[in-house]
Design a protein around this nucleic acid. Structure first.
Lengths: 300, 300
DNA sequence: ATACAGTTCTTAATTATTAAATGCACATCG
DNA sequence: CGATGTGCATTTAATAATTAAGAACTGTAT
C-alpha cells in the first residue's frame, strides 16, 4: 500500500552506469550533481548511495564518496514492468469501444476496465474524467460512469464540429506561404491518391490510412492546442468507424479519393471558395457515411 | 479509510419520514419497495432497518416488519456536510488562477489545492486531468501538475479557437427560424445594451455580465456538446480577464457595446456577410484586449 | 409460481501508508 | 565569509487497503 519505487530503481541503475565509466578510487560528484544526472530528487539519490555502500561498490562518509569496485551486471536492480501501456490508453479504449460496438448508455466499471486494460484504477478514473470533457462519458449519480458516445446525436454533433474545424483549416491552408511543408505533403498525397485510385479494386482497404494522413495534413496548418486535442479524438473515431463499416466500402472509398483530389486541386490553385466547396462536399459525405454505419449497427 | 455513509444517513432519515406518516403497529412495505422510496439499494435499506430495530422504532423478523413507536426528532442522524462545493470547482479554480494572477509554469500541488478549495484530493486529480484535455495544465514527470495557461500563445490560440466557434454560431444564427427564442433574446439584449450605453460612465462594470449573456445567446443556436463544453471554459476565461483587467475599462466597454449592437443589427437584418464582418471585428478587439491584459500582468 | 428475504460477491469512494520531493539549517572547504 | 554540499524534517503524491454501497443469486413462505 504505497507508491512504487520505479524511480529509485531506474535511478540506481543510472548511477551504476555512471560508476562504470569511472575508475576505481575515483571521487563521486555531489548529491545535487547526481540528481541532475539521474533526473530525480536528492532523496532518491541518497537511497541509491546507501544501497551502493551496502553493496560495497562505494565508500560513503559525508562528502567523501569514492568508488571501491566496478559494478557487476548482478548489481543492477531489474525494472518491474517496462510496459506501462497507460500512454496509449485513449487509443486502446476507443478501439475497444468501437471494436466491440459497446452501445451508448453502457455502464462502465472502473474495476473492470482496469482489468481489461491492465491499468491502475486511478489512472482510468483520470482518463474517464478527461473524456467526460468531450462528452463521451459522464459520471453516474450512484457512482460509476456511463458511455454516452456513438448515438446518432453524438455522430451528428461530432461531424458538425469536425466540419467547423476542418473548413477553418482549409481556409487557412489556402493562405499558407509557398514554403510551407503542406504543399510538398499535398503533392505527395496527390500521387498516393492517384496511385491508389488505379488499383482501388484490390487495395481499397488502404484508403483508411490515406484518409487519416490527408486530414492530418490539412489540419497541420492550424497551430492550435485546442484543435489538435480534438483532432486526435475525431480522427480516431472516424478512422475506426470506416474501418469496421464494410458496406459498399469499395465504392465509398473510390468516391472519397475523388473528393480528396478535388480539394487538393482547389488548394493548389489557391482558390479559396472552390476549396471550401470541395471540402464541404467531402465532409457531407463523411457525415452520411458515419451515420449510415451507425444505422447498420442499430439493426444488426 | 472507507467511503462515506452519506447515502445511508439520507436514506435512514427518509425512512423515518415514511414511518412518521404511518400509525403505530402498521406494517412496513417490502425491502424492495423501500428501495424505491429512498432511491437506494437493498443493502442500505437493510442497514436502515437494522438500526431502526436497534432504536426500538420497529420490530423486524423476516417479512414481519411493524412500527412500534413514532420516531422522535432525536432519532434522526445528522447529515455530515450538505456543502460539497465540488460542483462549481471549475469556476472557483479559474477564479483563483486569475484573481491571484498565478503565472504560467507554476507548479500546482494537489494537496495544497485540496486545502484551499476544501475538496477531496482525488476529485482535484480528476478535475486537473480534465483540464489537461484543454491544454490548461499538464502532468509533471516528477509528479504534480504545471499550470500552462495564460501565456501569450495560450491567449492567441484560445482567441482564435473562439473566433472559429463564434463565427460559425453567427452563420447559423442568421439562418435561425423566426420563432427561435434567439430573436426575442436579441431584442431584449439590444435594449439592455442601449440602456447601459446611456449610463456607461457610472455603470461600466455591469458590462462584463452583459457580454457573457450576449455571447451565450449567439452560441445558443448551436446545439453541439463539444461547442458547449468549450464555450463554458472560454466564456469563463474571457469573463474573468475582463473583470480583473481595469485598464481603460470604460472606453473599452463602451466600444464593445457598439460592436455588439452592430452584430445585433446585422443579425436582425438577416445580413449574413455583414454579421460575419461585425463579429469578426468584435472578436479581433476581444483578442487584442486579452493579449494586452496579459502584457500588463507581465510588467506588473 | 412469485414475491420477498437471506446471502454472497463486486464495485467504488476514501483513507492509510510509503516513496519521492522539497525546504531549511548547518557544516565544510576554498 | 561565501559558496557549495550534507543532514534532517516536512510535505506531497502514488498506490494499496478498507469499507459502504450496489447487484445478483438462492432459498422459502405464501
Amino acid at each position: 500500500m504505497a507508491r512504487s519505487d520505479t524511480r529509485f530503481r531506474a535511478a540506481y541503475n543510472q548511477v551504476l552506469d555512471y560508476c562504470e565509466g569511472q575508475p576505481a578510487g575515483a571521487h563521486i560528484p555531489s548529491e545535487a550533481a547526481l540528481c541532475e544526472i539521474a533526473g530525480v530528487s536528492r532523496t532518491v539519490i541518497r537511497r541509491c548511495l546507501s544501497r551502493l555502500q551496502e553493496a560495497g561498490i562505494i565508500s560513503w562518509d559525508g562528502r567523501e564518496k569514492r568508488i571501491l569496485r566496478a559494478p557487476a551486471e548482478s548489481d543492477r536492480i531489474d525494472q518491474p514492468e517496462p510496459t506501462a501501456g497507460g500512454a496509449d490508453l485513449e487509443e486502446r479504449f476507443l478501439d475497444w469501444v468501437l471494436r466491440f460496438d459497446v452501445p451508448a448508455g453502457t455502464t462502465l466499471s472502473v474495476a473492470e476496465l482496469s482489468r481489461t486494460f491492465s491499468v491502475p484504477q486511478h489512472e482510468l478514473k483520470e482518463f474517464l474524467a478527461g473524456l467526460s470533457r468531450f462528452g463521451l462519458v459522464s459520471r453516474r449519480p450512484q457512482g460509476g460512469w456511463t458511455l454516452l458516445g456513438f448515438t446518432k446525436e453524438f455522430a451528428v454533433e461530432l461531424s458538425d464540429f469536425r466540419s467547423v474545424l476542418e473548413l477553418n483549416a482549409v481556409a487557412q491552408a489556402v493562405e499558407a506561404p509557398v514554403d510551407h511543408p503542406l504543399w510538398a505533403k499535398l503533392a505527395e498525397l496527390r500521387d498516393r491518391h492517384l496511385d491508389l485510385k488505379a488499383r482501388i479494386d484490390r487495395d481499397y482497404h488502404a484508403f483508411s490510412k490515406l484518409d487519416e494522413g490527408f486530414h492530418q495534413a490539412i489540419n497541420s496548418v492550424v497551430k492550435n492546442r485546442f484543435v489538435a486535442e480534438f483532432q486526435k479524438v475525431i480522427s480516431l473515431i472516424f478512422h475506426y468507424h470506416f474501418m469496421w463499416d464494410k458496406t459498399e466500402e469499395k465504392i465509398r472509398n473510390a468516391a472519397a479519393i475523388d473528393e480528396h483530389l478535388a480539394i487538393i486541386d482547389a488548394l493548389e490553385a489557391r482558390d479559396g471558395p472552390a476549396a471550401q466547396e470541395a471540402a464541404r462536399r467531402h465532409l457531407r459525405t463523411s457525415k452520411t457515411t458515419l451515420l449510415s454505419s451507425l444505422r447498420h449497427h442499430d439493426l444488426g
